[in-house]
């Protein structure tokens, strides 16, 4: 059979190409442009080569922000993934409880991020906020606007409240897709509850958990809005995570060159970690 050559199909790709160009490629190239040049007023540029990159990579400020960011993300993953799985395991599997739990779980995910920040800001205020006031009434010296430990505690609590549901929903979907026969087979073998979790539920949830960890890693590593509204990066620089520090540098100090270089490094870190992690998790899957 003769195949006819028809290149018209390329026309269908154009809209996507234009869209991606405007929302990803062109902005990214602008950043690349800034990253290699010194910017003056009147759109004057001066070539700087890799100077900004070298400067950022040895800058203590960047190291500190990166350190805070890594610590924050690790804490988030260590809390949210097990907690999410635990809640999913204990959610009802049938009856009226299912929709109720699902709706309750989805609620935090539906609230705009800046609203979450504002809500928690008011909630945690030491004088009038329910959380802040209660903690102080119980005798804790709690003030998230002044003590960095309290600021971290509040930020993490807020993120756990906001995002654990995502892990719950994904895990729940994974658990529900396990056929009942697996549980019966385990029952016949006399497997313990832990063995059922370890050898049936966990392997069967592997794919959704990979997605959950990836999403939670990316979101928490790039977190901006909520801590910006809640703590503004403070007290001092205590909760100035990478993106908050980046915005300070770019828009606060108008150091566009170093900020652009930092964006690219930041982007590269996220990309590399995701790629390595995904390939590690899927290594065994691809064999089959």
């Amino acid at each position: 059979m003769n195949k006819t050559v028809n290149q018209k199909a390329w026309f269908f790709v154009i809209p996507v190409f234009v869209l991606v160009a405007f929302n990803a490629i062109i902005p990214l190239m602008t950043v690349v442009n800034y990253a290699f040049q010194e910017t003056f007023g009147n759109n004057q540029f001066m070539w700087e080569g890799t100077r900004w990159f070298k400067q950022i990579l040895v800058s203590e400020r960047f190291h500190a922000a990166l350190g805070r960011q890594v610590l924050f993300t690790l804490i988030i993953l260590v809390i949210q993934i097990p907690l999410g799985i635990f809640i999913a395991l204990n959610m009802p599997k049938e009856g009226i409880g299912v929709p109720i739990c699902l709706v309750l779980m989805s609620m935090p995910l539906l609230i705009p991020w800046n609203v979450v920040g504002a809500m928690w800001n008011i909630f945690a205020l030491p004088d009038i906020g329910f959380l802040g006031h209660s903690l102080n009434a119980m005798g804790f010296d709690y003030n998230f606007t002044q003590q960095s430990g309290d600021a971290w505690f509040t930020t993490i609590l807020m993120d756990v409240w906001h995002w654990t549901s995502l892990v719950v929903l994904l895990s729940y979907a994974g658990l529900r897709s396990i056929q009942p026969a697996y549980y019966q087979a385990a029952e016949i073998d006399g497997a313990t509850r832990w063995a059922v979790f370890r050898h049936i539920e966990l392997p069967k949830m592997k794919k959704v958990l990979t997605i959950a960890i990836l999403l939670r890693f990316m979101d928490s590593f790039m977190i901006y809005t909520e801590p910006f509204v809640l703590t503004g990066g403070g007290p001092g620089n205590a909760t100035a995570f990478l993106s908050i520090d980046l915005v300070k540098m770019a828009l606060g100090q108008f150091d566009l060159g170093p900020a652009a270089a930092m964006s690219l490094i930041y982007f590269f870190i996220v990309l590399t970690v995701c790629w390595v992690f995904y390939n590690l998790m899927m290594r065994n899957e691809s064999k089959s």
């Binding site: 026969a181 697996y182 019966q184 087979a185 016949i188 050898h199 049936i200 966990l202 392997p203 069967k204």
Partner: peptide
């Protein structure tokens, strides 16, 4: 007792 199902039930890992 042992049982074999329509679905292929084995421990995946």
């Amino acid at each position: 007792v042992s049982m074999v199902y329509q679905q292929f039930i084995n421990y995946p890992n």
